[in-house]
Design a protein around this nucleic acid. Structure first.
Length: 605
RNA sequence: CGGGGUGUGGCGCAGUCUGGCAGCGCGCAUGCUUUGGGAGCAUGAUGUCGGAGGUUCAAAUCCUCUCACCCCGACCA
């Protein structure tokens, strides 16, 4: 028996699940069962109603995932292979960057989160439970507390730094509303890395090393991502970046402001901008005048009623920040950026005031709030409003507005601070380019954490001058399960998935047209053996199905390269080689298939 | 948590308004015929109609409670 077929016998008897098969060289260790009839790929013909996004729909239909409960998914054999391939890319690039792989527990004593202070601020998203001894435990959605605790007391000298620890592991966040399949699940897999440095210069190098590694990871995975500035949210710290995959479908969960000239890019939550509106009139302050505006509550209605531009109005929006009333003022044509507002207030809890609360705070129904005469309400004013003269605002009375209102003369601001949400067409804060707002999916993030966690959890060391100092930390995530799904928002057509080759479950799908044709099966076995020996992942569709079924399943599953074996070409000793992304195939002699596959794969994303 | 919606065979759905034998398509099993883009014929299996309680001679259908899931919003390292 030829060597190839002997090996196939080993494979056939091998255990599913990818356990190493003895006697194979290192690079063949990840070989699995690859016959369709022996694996488990439950494809579905019909659209599943539970899925909205195309990527989610495809993963369900092509047999990659199944749902167990809201936001909790099982990864079937194809998905497991995608996860393995992407994880390995991440692992290799992290290791190359000098990070060390560890595994931390999903469970964590609540005590550590109480120490860091996040137990009280992270909210209901954190899953909490008690063990049999009634000890409070949490399920980790991120591991700053755990890893910092690990380091605390163990790292005592600057000589032991820098340190970069990472894991690829399950996370749990009890999302208020899970959706979009793997993109917003409650349980998911994440690569999370944590750096510990002794000083700022060292930290800058560690951070840059992670940024470089991230670009390398996404490039290898066939994904174009951009790095954008982001808000650091509940992580604390000042500087943060997100790695975004820009998409054209409606799956974009984040709005990204991108300068068309200088490369500035930021999450709209964070984005700064220069406003282009004409300078406010330099008219002298006029006397305030209360005017009736019957039936005009919204900005549109008021501008229509008074025949003025929205830029002449100031909106006063009522919020409740940690239980206290707050008024946020932005220009009439602008929207409040709630992240900026939250940061300005340093509030844990921020929500818009209800209709009843607005009535209580302002004495008027929604739509007529204004800063003049507001009592016991903190007023934050956007700079664009601060420079307005003779603005029009709500009168805190039903159906009334006030004209010619001026800051300082007519009301006082607790603070003048940027509260406005950037929008497409705004001018870049760093050059004279224009900002474009695009839809993106976050696939990775990096945070500069400073010394907050190290101080609270006692990760301190002695520096060269024998002084005790807290570690400077960073944390870095890549969504292992979300990224492949995000990729599908870009790589699909009306027939199904078109994987980038590096994260495809298999590189090649092998389809004999007729399984009861000896010549076709013999050629298939030969090619299967040759590709397998060359270390190429092949999915051999050995089912006795009609060709249409096999072709449609192949297109749905999205393996990048397809080899079709049929009588038409086989009579001349050829098989058909076709890229999933192409319309046409090439004829290739049976004994040259391996080289041809490698050559074709080189040209594919 | 607020608003809207859906639970009927493995999947997709009809039936519910107006109570009266639980149906259709796909899939599944067996046989025959087929075989280059989701085959045809024949035969067959599969349901506590999400759950509990109630009304009724009779409940998938009406009433009450409850659970799960989906969509919109708030939230999101």
């Amino acid at each position: 028996m030829p060597h190839g077929l002997a090996m196939l016998e080993i494979l056939r008897r091998g255990r599913p699940g990818g356990l190493p098969i003895s006697g194979l060289t290192d690079w063949k260790i990840r070989i699995y069962l690859m016959r369709w009839s022996k694996t488990y790929i439950p494809t579905l013909r019909q659209k599943q109603t539970e899925a909205e996004l195309i990527s989610h729909q495809l993963l369900l239909r092509a047999g990659y995932i199944r749902k167990l409960a809201a936001g909790i998914y099982l990864y079937l054999p194809l998905m497991q292979r995608v996860i393995d391939k992407f994880s390995n890319i991440v692992r290799e690039e992290m290791n190359r960057a000098g990070a060390l792989e560890i595994t931390m527990s999903v469970l964590c004593p609540a005590e550590l989160w109480q120490k860091s202070g996040r137990y009280d601020t992270i909210g209901k998203e954190q899953m909490r439970l008690k063990d049999r001894h009634q000890h409070d435990m949490v399920l980790c959605g991120t591991h700053e507390e755990t890893v910092t605790n690990l380091i605390a007391g163990e790292v005592r000298s600057y000589r032991q730094l820098p340190l970069n620890l990472y894991q690829i592991q399950v996370k749990f966040r009890d999302e208020i509303r899970p959706r979009f399949g793997l993109m917003r699940g409650r349980e998911f897999i994440m690569k999370d890395a944590y750096t510990f440095d002794a000083d700022a210069e060292s930290f800058a190098r560690s951070y840059q090393a992670m940024v470089d590694a991230y670009f390398a990871v996404f490039k290898r995975a066939g994904l174009d991502v951009i790095k954008v500035e982001s808000d650091s949210g509940a992580m604390g710290g000042k500087v943060a970046h997100e790695f975004m995959l820009l998409v054209d479908t409606d799956a974009g969960e984040e709005d990204i402001a991108v300068c068309n000239k200088c490369g500035y890019a930021a999450n709209v939550e964070k984005a700064e901008f220069k406003d282009d509106a004409p300078d406010p009139t330099d008219a002298e302050p006029k006397d305030m005048e209360t005017i009736d505006t019957p039936g005009a509550a919204t900005i549109e209605e008021v501008t229509e009623f008074l025949k003025v531009d929205a830029t002449a109005l100031a909106k006063t929006l009522m919020y409740k920040a940690d239980g206290k009333p707050v008024a946020a003022m932005v220009r009439g044509d602008r929207d409040v950026n709630e992240v900026k507002l939250r940061n300005a207030l340093k509030a844990v809890d921020l929500e818009m005031a209800s209709e009843e609360e607005v009535l209580k705070y302002t004495g008027a129904p929604v739509g007529f709030a204004g800063p003049v005469g507001l009592k016991d309400v903190q007023i934050l004013v956007d700079p664009l409003v601060a420079e307005m003269k003779n603005m029009i605002v709500g009168a805190n009375a039903g159906e009334k507005h006030i004209k010619n209102v001026n800051l300082d003369r007519d009301f006082k601001a607790a603070e003048v601070i940027d509260l406005t949400r950037a929008r497409g067409g705004d001018t870049c804060p760093h050059c004279d380019g224009k900002l474009d707002v695009k839809d993106g999916i976050e696939v990775g993030n990096t945070f500069q954490l400073g010394t907050n966690y190290a101080e609270k959890l006692g990760a301190k060391f002695l520096d060269a001058d024998s002084e005790e100092r807290p570690c400077i930390m960073g944390s870095y995530g890549i969504g292992i399960t979300r990224t492949p799904q995000a990729a599908l928002e870009k790589y699909f057509d009306d027939k199904g998935i078109i994987w980038p080759k590096a994260i495809a479950p298999y590189l090649v799908e092998l389809i004999p047209i007729k399984m009861d044709n000896e010549n076709q099966v013999a050629a298939a076995e030969k090619i299967y053996a040759a590709l397998t020996e060359a270390g190429i992942d092949v999915l051999y569709d050995d089912r006795d199905e009609r060709p249409g079924v096999k072709f449609n399943d192949a297109d749905l599953v999205g393996v990048p390269v397809r080899i079709t074996i049929g009588d038409k070409s086989l009579k001349d000793g050829n098989v058909e080689l076709k890229a999933r992304s192409a319309d046409k195939f090439d004829l290739v002699p049976v004994n040259e298939v391996v080289e041809a596959v490698i050559r074709l794969a080189e040209t594919l994303n």
